[in-house]
Computed example of a mutant assay.
Amino acid sequence: MQLHWSPKSPYVRKVMIAAHELGVVDQLALVRSVAAMLKPNPALMAVNPLSKIPALVLDDGSTLWDSVVICEYLNARAHGPLFPSEGPARWQALRWHALGDGMLDALILWRNEREREVPLVNLIAAFELKINAALALLESEVDALAQAPFTIGHLTLVCALGYIDYRFASHCWRGRAPRLAVWFETMAQRTSMKATEPVDG
Results as ranks from 00 to 15, higher is better:
113 E>G: 10
15 V>A: 09
65 W>N: 12
44 L>C: 06
158 V>M: 10
79 H>Q: 15
29 A>E: 14
140 S>C: 00
192 S>H: 07
5 W>R: 04
158 V>P: 01
25 V>N: 11
94 L>M: 13
53 I>V: 13
23 G>Y: 09
174 R>H: 09
7 P>N: 07
182 V>R: 08
48 N>Q: 09
77 R>F: 10
86 E>G: 11
126 A>R: 15
79 H>D: 15
49 P>C: 05
165 D>H: 03
169 A>T: 05
62 S>R: 15
172 C>F: 07
33 S>M: 05
72 E>A: 14
178 P>S: 02
13 R>V: 08
149 P>D: 11
122 N>G: 14
13 R>N: 09
85 S>I: 07
192 S>I: 10
32 R>D: 14
20 H>E: 15
38 L>D: 14
67 S>K: 08
77 R>K: 14
73 Y>L: 08
8 K>S: 12
64 L>Y: 06
18 A>R: 01
95 R>L: 11
165 D>T: 04
184 F>G: 00
38 L>E: 14
118 V>Q: 14
169 A>D: 08
121 V>I: 13
102 G>T: 07
115 E>S: 13
101 D>P: 02
44 L>D: 04
176 R>P: 00
75 N>K: 04
116 R>D: 10
42 P>A: 02
188 A>R: 13
98 A>K: 07
119 P>T: 07
83 F>D: 02
52 K>W: 05
143 D>Q: 14
140 S>H: 01
47 V>K: 02
183 W>K: 00
163 Y>G: 04
111 R>G: 09
88 P>G: 02
85 S>T: 12
184 F>Y: 15
106 A>L: 11
120 L>M: 12
86 E>I: 08
18 A>W: 03
41 N>T: 04
116 R>I: 07
163 Y>V: 06
7 P>A: 09
159 C>D: 06
83 F>G: 01
20 H>R: 11
157 L>G: 00
9 S>W: 02
106 A>W: 06
140 S>R: 03
7 P>M: 07
148 A>V: 01
91 W>H: 10
158 V>I: 12
160 A>R: 01
190 R>L: 11
92 Q>C: 03
26 D>V: 03
87 G>K: 00
178 P>V: 02
63 T>N: 09
98 A>R: 11
47 V>F: 03
35 A>K: 01
128 E>M: 08
20 H>P: 08
121 V>R: 14
114 R>D: 03
99 L>P: 00
173 W>R: 02
183 W>E: 00
180 L>P: 01
63 T>C: 15
129 L>A: 15
164 I>D: 01
